[in-house]
Amino acid sequence: MFKGSKVLQPEDLNQMNNIIEKLKTQSKCLVVLIVDDSGHLITNTESDPSIDPILLGTLTAGNFGATNELAKLIGEAEFTLVLHEGNKENIHMLAIGDCGILVVIFANTTPIGLIRMYSQKSVTALLPYLEKMQVEKKASKKDLPSDEDLENLFNW
């Protein structure tokens, strides 16, 4: 099992951003997010300021994890898709291999088939970038706050 840090390089983030922007345009959805399996938000398209993408990412990962436990209870290895339907808006979550989750928020006026088709295509395109993130790597000490930096940061 992978235990190192996840590393995201600028060029890979650009590629992932291009993929989710394209998904947003083609599927006519409202917001797209990519979340890793431990709940960290990797990136997202611009969204309504009332939506907190960090919280959304955390809850998505929790929700997806709980759903996979349900899957195991009935003898399935996993559920790759989770859909929540609201009165006006819906959330569509699709596993990106076992590395992350593609989250799409869309209005009721948008056909679900459109979201499913373009989400699936995007997952295929995103998977190599998420797999590439999983590398054993230490951070450079010069990039990290020292003990002294933390002491001086605020009055603990």
């Binding site: 992978f2 235990k3 190192g4 840090s5 996840k6 590393v7 995201l8 390089q9 600028p10 890979d12 983030l13 650009n14 890793d36 431990s38 709940g39 960290h40 990797i42 790597k137 951070a139 990039d143 990290l144």
Partner: peptide
Amino acid sequence: MTMLNYAKKEIICKI
């Protein structure tokens, strides 16, 4: 696990 995001110059850790 820690995420080292060199694109956003960001380190995210989980406690």
